[in-house]
Design a protein around this nucleic acid. Structure first.
Lengths: 219, 219
DNA sequence: ACATGTGCGATTGTCAACAGTTAGCATTCG
DNA sequence: CGAATGCTAACTGTTGACAATCGCACATGT
């Protein structure tokens, strides 16, 4: 049986809004008025509400009762929170993933590592970040835990938004970790080295933290 | 400023439904028909939809498109998933918590450990489980990461539901870990021993896993 | 000048009704 | 007798309208 994935109206709306938020078309803090969106997309407010509820779940918008919803403007504090949770989840993920990786998974990781570096050197940071997110996603998928994967996805969205909005203020965010850092994760998983993989993930986040802390000092 | 929490209609509905699900009044698999609930609570379908969406987020109900929502009937697989994610999050949480624990936090942990054991010996398992969840929640709150705490809360709901429904089938689930196991977590946090706390959490979940695996074999 | 009260516009919360889809059952045809 | 087809009732997805609430600006009084 072919699973044709018919999207509900609110899913289509949510996808569209998510894109507009992540590509910066809807800047942080922008108000999302249900009636406006309804007329813009030619639907009623019901699906709009559902879509906004989903984006709120993902942390891309904030929803103040009786006062409407607006695009989340995430701060330093949020960045730290997201990274802490992602680190915890990914450390768990690699431990589970080591038993289940297939050759295709490893090939995809290699491909994404290369894509990240290429995009970085080509100067296309958003593309590099997305490839990096996809890289992390691969081994989280390998963990074979649907709940974990969904959480990672939602946090990845928030991370992308954070990077985008933060980059607008701090040019020093225009970087990705040197490819060796994430590669160590891939290598450890490939070698079925659980503790090594956990260390590699910790190292990756430590590196990122240090780099961000450095920014805080030098800016 | 005092945060008085005025509840939206859907929140009230969600709380009520959550209770009814967790105390077994609404058994696993029970269909939740929007119109029925609307007339039962004397509201329209709108707030009911919002409430169901929230419960779906928490994993307490499943939502099949165009076919309505019903109380989640979680399986062995789900139990494993939830525990894996909880373990990952809590290992991260204790690492963050060691720096931030206050005397009140430690007192509350002690109190909850005692409450768990008392309720267990008094034969009131649901109470014991809830106290245990609250215990875990304390050090997750100490981590000072709102996102992490919210995830832990949602997973705790699922765990309670799992325990309840599983208990109905397997009497051998009628237990809690010996109080020493969670106490080691509290002790390590109190001693500001980060790696020890991580080990204690891992140990706790390992113990639970073994016990559950034992059930699978002996039942 | 400052605090307090009041009216207005904007926006969400809630409701009731319509339309499309689904599962189950009866019916028909081979 | 079995499989495919066509109905039917139940339910969700969606809509448009109404009511309640909030923020803001202006007026009023001290």
């Amino acid at each position: 049986m072919v699973q044709l994935d018919h999207k509900q109206l609110w899913e289509t709306v949510a996808d569209r809004l998510r894109d507009e938020i992540l590509d910066g078309h809807l800047p942080a803090g922008a108000r999302l008025v249900e009636a406006d969106l309804a007329s813009r997309f030619g639907v009623s407010r019901g699906p709009i509400r559902d879509a906004l509820a989903d984006l709120s779940r993902s942390g891309l918008v904030v929803d103040l009762p009786r006062r409407g919803t607006s695009v989340a403007s995430l701060r330093e504090q949020d960045l730290a929170e997201v990274y802490e949770v992602r680190r915890a989840l990914e450390e768990g993920a690699v431990r589970m993933a080591i038993a289940r990786g297939t050759a295709e998974d490893f090939a995809e990781m290699d491909r994404l590592l290369a894509a990240t570096e290429n995009a970085y050197h080509a100067g296309s940071l958003p593309v590099a970040w997305e490839a990096d997110m996809a890289f992390h996603r691969v081994y989280c998928r390998m963990a074979g835990n649907g709940r974990l994967l969904e959480l990672v996805d939602r946090l990845a969205s928030q991370t992308l938004l954070l990077m985008r909005t933060a980059l607008a203020e701090h040019a020093s965010l225009a970087w990705t970790p040197p490819v060796e850092v994430p590669r160590r994760i891939a290598d450890a998983i490939r070698a079925r080295d659980g503790e090594g993989a956990v260390r590699a993930v910790a190292n990756h986040y430590q590196y990122t933290e240090d780099r961000l802390a450095g920014r805080a000092k030098t800016d």
